[in-house]
Structures are given as C-alpha cells and as structure tokens.
C-alpha cells in the first residue's frame, strides 16, 4: 500500500518481432483502489526511441519531461535523432544519478535503430540497471501476469500484425487480472518506415 511502485498502478510491455518491435501500456491512473483517470498513457516518444514508464505517477511525468528536455538538447547538439541504444544509456545514467533517492519508476525502451535497422528493446530497475532482452520486457503492477502471458504467447520472428496481436493479447489478459491496471491500452507497432499506434478499449473495470 505504501510501496511507491503500486500506489498508482499501471503496466507496460515491449516485444521484439521480425524487423519490428511493439510496445504497449495501460491507461489507468489510480490512488490505491480509486481510479482517478482512464486516460493516462505511459508511453512517450523521443524520435526513434519509445519510452514506457510505470511506477509512481508523479515520477512518470517528471521522467517523461526530463527526457523530453534531455533528448531535445541531444538533438540540438548532435543535429540528429537519438538512437534507442543511446537513449537506453541516457535513461540508465539519469536514474543512477539518483542512486540513493531514486525515481520510483520501471522504464522500458523499444525502438528500431534507423542506422542499422535492428529492433531494440530493454528494461531498467529504478536505479538504472539495464536489462537487455532478446524477446520481451515487462514492467508495472501487472508484471507477474505479463511474464506469464508473454512467456507463453510470444515466439521469435513474428510479423508486425502478428506481433501486434501477441502484444495486445498479452497486455489485455494481464491487466484484466490486475486490479491496479487496465481501463484501456495503447499499443505501438514499430517497423523501420512506419509506426502504427492503436487504442485498445479493453475492459472498463
């Protein structure tokens, strides 16, 4: 109850497919058992990198805005968009800067490197330890459920539309078994030359 990671609730999942990645989040914002908003997306875009943030809502917003600032400064300095791998190291070092007073978030990054064309996903703990995964990354209050659904539904080299379905089903069925997540979802399906964002209605309870 007083665990900062489970006051507001929320879930994020990212998956790798064949030359594509998918990232999805739920839309709930709550205070303990009370739902305050059903339109609180947890995925933020930074050029080619997509950042999902679960945890304490205030830190989700703070981090999203901090990275908007940092990525904009990067783009002005470098005159190019930030690569997902670079973004991962930026997130990691920004979190570790607060090693002894952390932001209570569990970030997830998904994206396709426009230079190499390689899909990339990774996750972090709240102090910036990177989890490079070849398959999928989960985070949030429904992470146990997401581990179960992703581990059983996911398979290698899924085409974009199949990856979208796998990711959506994993997310939807997981948040339905978590009281603190749900109320709709956003799913991004990212290929080298196209990004599709879909709004999933999901159960409204």
């Amino acid at each position: 109850m007083s665990n900062p990671f489970s006051i507001n609730g929320g879930a994020v999942v990212a998956m790798v497919g064949k030359d594509c990645v998918a990232i999805g989040c739920d839309l709930r914002l709550g205070m303990q058992a009370l739902t305050v908003s059903n339109n609180f997306p947890k995925i933020f875009t930074y050029g080619d990198a997509y950042l999902g943030l679960t945890g304490l809502a205030t830190d989700v917003t703070t981090m999203a805005e901090l990275f908007r600032y940092k990525v904009n400064m990067y783009r002005l300095r470098e005159e190019r968009a930030i690569e997902p791998e670079t973004m991962a190291n930026l997130v990691s070092s920004s979190l570790y800067e607060r090693r002894f007073g952390p932001y209570f978030v569990s970030p997830v990054i998904a994206g396709i490197n426009q230079r190499t064309g390689k899909p990339f996903i990774c996750g972090f703990d709240s102090i910036g330890c990177i989890d490079f995964a070849k398959d999928f990354i989960v985070s949030g209050t429904a992470s146990d459920q997401l581990f179960g659904t992703c581990e059983s539904l996911w398979e290698p080299d899924l085409e974009p539309e199949d990856l979208f379905e796998t990711c959506s089903q994993a997310l939807l069925n997981s948040v339905d078994r978590d009281a603190l997540s749900g109320w709709g979802a956003h799913v991004y399906i990212i290929t080298k030359d196209k990004v599709i964002k879909r709004l999933l209605k999901g159960r409204q309870d």
């Binding site: 205070m31 305050v36 908003s37 339109n39 304490l56 809502a57 205030t58 917003t61 703070t62």
Partner: peptide, 15 residues
C-alpha cells in the same frame, strides 16, 4: 487538471 500532494497530474473531464 487534477493534482494530488505527490504531484500526480491528470487532465480529466470532471474531478
């Protein structure tokens, strides 16, 4: 806008 004492912010139609 709805803000609580932790500075969680939400833009909502009624609050």
């Amino acid at each position: 806008y709805w803000l609580d004492h932790l500075a969680s912010q939400a833009s909502i139609p009624y609050a």
